[in-house]
Design a protein around this nucleic acid. Structure first.
Length: 610
DNA sequence: GTGTAGGGCGCG
DNA sequence: AAAGCGCGCCCTACAC
């Protein structure tokens, strides 16, 4: 399917007539310490070490691979360009124009599209070789690129020839993928991809003094705590276990603060040196992590004072965006850690405030919607300010007081609301009693015994038959696809069947008491609760995506998006009205789920916070 | 030195 | 009957 490249010189390319879409692929110098992962796209391309040594361009018939300065860019101006990881190639191209390597006026694409984002949307492997394998069944050798790492092929003829063929072949593969699959990528998803890129390129305003001061503080702190430990490196579990052995204390099953086994161990050995050591280790790890995030932010500082970042379109198989480019802005600590509030580093630019608008309990609402629990949804709709846990308690736990659940619990000392919270957050997707003991502890601070947990799980399933039906329906629908692919359409397809928006479970294998399938290239166990969770997450993603598009349409372009929230920079003068408008847009029911009640909470703040 | 697996720490 | 899920990055340990 992918032909061997018909390689021609830049001179021959300039002579030939060609039309249609062209693929563009740059090869650049990188090492372990100088890479996109280390610096992000912007800083990588603006580093003194930046060097783009090859450009590969193909229209499918002819392929030209040469130094970027040698290619006749004007011949492809105004056409559609495609790259596999467009944002990388576009960043390189624009930097080369800035540097004068490519004449600035000579060329721009009419549109520049991305075959990697397209593959991700169709839930195929994002990497070029993986996608080619999945779509065409062909194997691309990744060897030449690996051998090129850390070397300048311009100074190595043999390598240069090898890399040229490789670059030409990659460009052809990108073009082939694009041409083959392009019609399955809807226009509004392309727009979301573009909005994502623009958002990251625009970046965020950052309080750089705070970032620097806190990074130094944390580095000092981590260093001094580490010095108090009698081994190096301070966070070595192996060393810790050896030290435990020396003082005759059994090592914990885990040294993770979040691990239930660790909590049990700590209780037993509270007064030992080992307990002190392990808490030191945890503090060092936490401080190091936070310091690294701050360092990563500093590396992405642009001369404008803003920080560029990347968010990966369709990074999760459900369609959610994920972090990427070496700095993940979707997992910044919510709370202060070791005296540092990471979110506080992201600020509103002068004359502006940050607006953070997030959907309230979106996944819970979507689950009830998918399960067809119209009664519960009506309660959400008719009581827009109600507490989701209270609605659950009234619906399924027999709570019938006229006063709010929270007030009632505060007055009577009941833990009913905590229990409702644990049930809502933990039991909607098939969690069993064993796991629920941990889930209830982490999510609601409840300490449950075995029988108690069993009782709650049973009671939840008995009193939420529609949710359990949903699991079973999905499990059955998947099992029917034994030996082939299970394609679960998302609700937006009901409104527009032309959209190819499915969750795919490939190569389903049903055995006596087990179902497995391939998701995102990996074999995994599949069960009703899992499919329900995936379906819910994907649908909630589509709700946010719809809101994002409609906000942008109205002139409100977010500067950040985190799963169920959009963040905007609003001019101080109009912030109140703007936020009200944003909330109204986000709460407007989506076309394909008019009876899904949506609730948004919005806040105006001088800096980012939850 | 480079690549990778697993544990750990963060988020929705 | 049983099964929370979805991510990314850093660090250590270890194979090559």
């Amino acid at each position: 399917m992918i032909p061997e490249p018909n390689m021609i010189t830049p001179e021959a390319w300039a002579q030939a007539e060609c039309g249609g879409t062209v693929a563009v692929d740059f090869e650049t110098f990188y090492t372990a310490t100088y890479s996109v992962a280390e610096l992000g796209l912007w800083a990588y391309c603006h580093d003194p070490r930046f060097q783009a040594y090859l450009a590969a361009v193909t229209d499918g018939e002819r392929t030209c691979v040469c130094a970027p300065s040698k290619f006749p860019w004007a011949t492809i101006a105004g056409r559609t360009w495609v790259s596999h990881h467009r944002d990388f190639d576009r960043a390189v191209f624009e930097r080369l124009q800035e540097l004068g390597t490519i004449p600035a006026a000579s060329a721009t694409a009419a549109t520049w599209v991305c075959s990697a984002a397209l593959c991700a949307y169709l839930q195929m492997p994002r990497d070029l070789a993986g996608a080619v394998k999945a779509v065409f069944g062909e194997t691309l050798d990744k060897g030449p690129r690996d051998r090129a790492k850390g070397r300048h092929p311009t100074e190595d003829c043999f390598l240069a020839v090898e890399i040229s063929r490789y670059a030409g072949r990659d460009a052809l593969a990108s073009l082939a993928l694009w041409n083959h699959l392009e019609r399955h990528w809807p226009a509004h998803e392309r727009r979301l991809f573009d909005l994502t890129s623009e958002m990251g390129r625009h970046g965020l305003a950052v309080d750089w003094e705070y970032v620097r001061a806190k990074r130094l503080e944390l580095e000092d702190l981590a260093g001094s705590i580490a010095d108090a430990l009698p081994w190096k490196p301070a966070t070595s579990v192996k060393q810790f276990e050896a030290a435990c052995e020396r003082i005759g204390v059994p090592a914990p099953p885990s040294t993770s603060n979040a691990d239930p086994g660790f909590a049990r161990w700590l209780k037993k050995h509270l007064d030992s040196d080992a307990a002190t050591w392990v808490r030191h280790m945890q503090r060092v790890r936490s401080a190091n992590r936070t310091a690294k995030v701050l360092e990563s932010m500093e590396a992405r500082r642009m001369p404008t004072g803003r920080m560029a970042y990347e968010l990966k379109y369709f990074g999760a198989s459900t369609g959610r965006w994920s972090g990427g480019g070496g700095l993940n802005l979707q997992n910044l600590n919510r709370k202060t850690a070791e005296g540092v509030d990471l979110r506080r580093a992201i600020i509103a630019p002068p004359g502006h405030v940050l607006a953070v608008a997030d959907y309230s309990q979106i996944e819970n609402r979507v689950l009830l919607y998918l399960a067809g629990d119209t009664e519960a949804l009506a309660l959400f709709r008719d009581n827009p300010n109600a507490d989701a846990y209270e609605i659950h308690a009234r619906r399924t736990m027999g709570y019938a007081e006229s006063e709010s659940l929270k007030a009632w619990c505060d007055r009577t000392g009941s833990n009913l609301r905590q229990l409702a919270k644990a049930r809502v957050l933990g039991l909607g997707f098939g969690c069993g009693w064993r796991k629920f003991i941990d889930v209830a502890r982490v999510m609601a601070g409840l300490e449950l015994g075995e029988d108690e947990s069993k009782g709650i799980v049973e009671d939840f399933r008995r009193s939420n038959p529609l949710v359990v039906d949903l699991w079973n329906r999905l499990q059955d629908a998947c099992a029917v696809c034994d030996g082939r692919r299970y394609a679960l359409p998302l609700p937006c397809m009901q409104h527009n069947p032309a959209l190819k928006r499915f969750l795919f479970y490939r190569d389903v294998v049903v055995s006596k008491d087990d179902t497995t399938a391939t998701v995102a290239g990996e074999r995994m166990h599949v069960y009703g609760g899992l499919i329900a969770e995936n379906w819910t997450q994907a649908t909630a993603r589509d709700v946010l995506a719809s809101a994002w598009l409609r906000c942008a349409q109205a002139g409100f372009v977010p500067v950040l998006s985190v799963h169920d929230e959009l963040v905007f920079e609003l001019p101080e003068a109009s912030a109140d009205q703007d936020l009200a408008q944003i909330i109204a847009i986000m709460e407007t029911p989506v076309l394909w789920a008019p009876h899904l009640p949506l609730k948004v909470e919005g806040k105006l703040m001088p800096f980012y916070a939850k």
